[in-house]
Design a binder for these strands. Structure first.
Lengths: 239, 239
DNA sequence: CGAAAGTTTGAATGTGCTCAACAGCTGTGG
DNA sequence: CCACAGCTGTTGAGCACATTCAAACTTTCG
């Protein structure tokens, strides 16, 4: 399942066999978690970074009032906390949304990579910068898009990101989340998310049912979302 | 003025003279811009990264409807586009809000740093991860905080970030922005921002007038904002 | 001095929230 | 096998925070 990670890396850069092997050798274990468990606590000191092999996880923050804001979704092939390598502790929790499997990589091994493999270091630096680009786009959604636009945008984003790791078909993808999960991502209430999903469905744009997103009209959906995939950096950079 | 940059770096890590000199030597020019100019266009290929020496700049995205969402503020000592070193183009524009002075650093020099100075590389990787942490906290504000909480939180954040580079006193700081600038940061209209600022002022928490933020009641402001500075990573990490 | 930008206020409107109730489904235990 | 709890999804009614539109006022600056 770790193939997805290298597929994702190679979508943006040329990764040599040596570099791939360095990361493979750095993995010191795999773990599985059931749904809805905190994997990494904010504030706790980190010694490893964690690579998501399978399942869906999220970054989030709880507020005083009990509301939760999810600030990012992690898909198979993503590091959950590569930023934790330099930050040394997280500012937000990371939790599973579905059952997940992870590989762990000790920070000592990542340090060794930065000492010996500068190109791979830059590729991993890129990965954290890509995460940040997604955070920026979510800021735009949360700050300026309507509920309809936000959800449409999220469905467009996930379609592209899942396609990169071979987990989406042209007409949709598995997304075993609840309506509340989507609400917590997009800064909405569950009730309003439910109504907005109905609106998108009756508009013939997208359907979210039984843990699956079915895209009914991709062009229309992207139009409704004002979606431009440039922030996902799908092109390969020159080595 | 570049001292502010090293002050900021050294708040989180030990930077040697050699490392400092490597970055100083990498600077190949300085530029000044008047207020409200685009400094870096989204999508354009980058060959340099740009360090803000003085003034305030922002990252932002324009939407179809003409609204603007600012996704981050840059203060003196910050790189505007260190993420651009690995991304090679930006996903959002960077513009000045006030008159600004910048130093430019060619990507070739940054590549050389990643080849020769792995510890400094990690320190700069940290800087981009800190930017991302701020993006995440803004997502929380935009997604879940009320107008009052958002503005209070922004004032708290800027107080800490400006203090780091010696640009804030205990009771406030210069912030030569307009109410619309604040509105564009916090996903609000100018009108509602105006009313909310009045509310914060009459509540005796904070005053924003004549390009200056005066903190009237720091504890009360932080309480209103639900502010926890942990995401700003103010502590030093072990080398 | 006049124009432009920024700030302030009022009134009406609307998007999304709160509160509440209920239906459907799954898993559990008596 | 049924009763029941718990979670998810759905719908309705009323409300509130923030927006829109409009106008007036203040400050800045050429």
């Amino acid at each position: 399942m770790i193939e997805r990670h290298f597929t994702k890396l190679r979508m943006r850069d040329d990764i040599s066999r040596e570099e791939e092997n360095a990361l493979r050798a750095a993995i010191d274990g795999t773990i599985s978690f059931p749904p809805d468990r905190i994997v990494l606590h904010a504030g706790r000191e980190l010694t490893h970074s964690t690579l998501l092999l399978d399942g869906i996880a999220c970054r989030y923050k709880d507020l005083r009032g009990g509301e939760r804001q999810v600030t990012g979704l992690h898909l198979p092939g993503d590091f959950l906390d590569l930023h934790g390598f330099t930050l040394k502790r997280l500012d937000q929790h990371v939790a599973t949304l579905t059952a997940c499997t992870f590989a762990t990589v000790p920070h000592t091994a990542l340090t060794a990579i930065t000492e010996r493999l500068p190109h791979l270091t830059r590729a991993y630096w890129f990965e954290t910068n890509l995460d940040a680009a997604i955070h920026r786009e979510w800021e735009v959604s949360l700050g300026r898009r309507t509920a309809r636009g936000r959800l449409a945008h999220l469905f467009c984003e996930l379609q592209v990101r899942l396609e990169v790791v071979g987990l989406a078909e042209a007409d949709g993808y598995a997304l075993p989340l609840t309506q509340s999960d989507l609400a917590e991502c997009m800064g909405l209430t569950t009730v309003h998310t439910n109504r907005t999903l109905r609106e998108l469905r009756t508009a013939g744009l997208v359907e979210f049912r039984d843990g699956r997103v079915t895209i009914l009209d991709l062009a229309g959906l992207r139009q409704a979302a004002d979606f431009d995939p440039a922030y996902l950096y799908l092109e390969k950079r020159a080595r």
